[in-house]
């Protein structure tokens, strides 16, 4: 029994004008555009329909994501991904020009840059998951720490005053039965008395005083839900790209010895996927962080 040979894996197909692998990856990317397009649309609709004063999270001075997200970290990650696209193209170009060693070296640099992106993302996620927004039942003022407030409109159109603090939980005090007695809460720098220039001071908050307490995690607000879903899905695509590139780094030499053109084509397909993933981030960065 002879093995089935997939045709047009190097030469272009007469109907599509490209080899079959490239045609396949473009079909896949078309489905990816629909996936991320749906998520971007969801974000836009939620943002446009958000009650006043609640975007990106209750109490933000403006509606931009830079109130609660770390723009410098995201800019660093953007630089990593743009550079990784450059190294990806250089890997492909060197393979096409017959230099396997240089091609593999650039592919390795691409994997390292993708890894650096994920490390930065870990720190960004971690800081959000340990940052709290506390909404009080009424105005809070204790030990020199006072809640901030804003007047927002509910979806029903009625005005509502929200009293809140942002900060970190330093300690959770529990009784013998494990029920929470109080939180030792360290407010953010600009929410304690005196504002800028004053060292923030930890304050004790009792559960009965709290209307809502949430981290800046996915459940914190609609914005944060969108942020974690879209960037999380994008992060999974980065992981997928790393797995594919590592596979080619580890097994590429075998195919290169017998079918160098086919190997270069596979790296081109990987590069097309990688550019799409980077392009999604190029749109995500201004949409989530700057606008």
């Amino acid at each position: 029994m002879s093995a089935t040979v997939i045709p047009y894996d190097v030469k272009p197909h007469p109907l599509t004008g490209m080899y079959n692998g490239k045609f396949g990856i473009w079909l896949f990317l078309a489905s990816e555009i629909m996936l991320f397009g749906a998520l971007f649309s969801t974000y836009v609709l939620l943002r446009v329909g958000a009650p006043e004063g609640t975007w990106p999270i209750a109490g933000s001075p403006t509606t931009r994501g830079d109130n609660i997200l770390q723009v410098p970290l995201a800019a660093l990650n953007t630089a990593f991904l743009i550079t990784s696209s450059v190294t990806m193209v250089l890997a492909w170009a060197n393979l096409k020009m017959g230099s396997f060693k240089k091609g593999q070296q650039f592919l390795l640099v691409t994997v390292l840059l993708a890894g650096a992106f994920l490390v930065v993302k870990y720190f960004e996620y971690n800081s959000k998951l340990h940052h709290y927004a506390v909404t009080f039942n009424e105005h809070f003022d204790r030990d020199g720490v006072e809640s901030k407030s804003f007047k927002g409109l509910t979806q029903a159109g009625t005005e509502k005053t929200i009293h809140y603090l942002w900060g970190h939980v330093e300690e959770t005090k529990k009784d013998a039965d494990g029920a929470i007695q109080s939180y030792l809460f360290m407010p953010d720098h600009d929410t304690s008395h005196g504002g800028e220039g004053h060292e923030p001071k930890a304050v004790e908050i009792h559960p009965a005083e709290i209307a809502r307490m949430t981290t800046f995690g996915p459940g914190g607000s609609s914005f944060l839900g969108c942020y974690f879903v879209i960037t999380g899905l994008h992060g999974l695509h980065i992981v997928g790209g790393i797995v594919v590139m590592l596979w080619f780094l580890l097994t590429g030499s075998k195919m290169w010895k017998t079918q160098p053109d086919k190997y270069a084509n596979r790296i081109e397909c990987t590069g097309l996927y990688w550019h799409f993933v980077d392009l999604v981030w190029i749109f995500l960065f201004p949409v989530l962080y700057l606008l």
Partner: peptide, 25 residues
């Protein structure tokens, strides 16, 4: 569309994004 063409498009969009970061700053 080859990787070269997609890369040219990508660099063009990245330039626009960098300019938007500049304006934001």
């Amino acid at each position: 569309m080859s990787l070269k063409a997609f890369h040219v498009f990508f660099v063009a969009i990245a330039i626009l994004m960098c300019i938007s970061l500049g304006i934001w700053g």
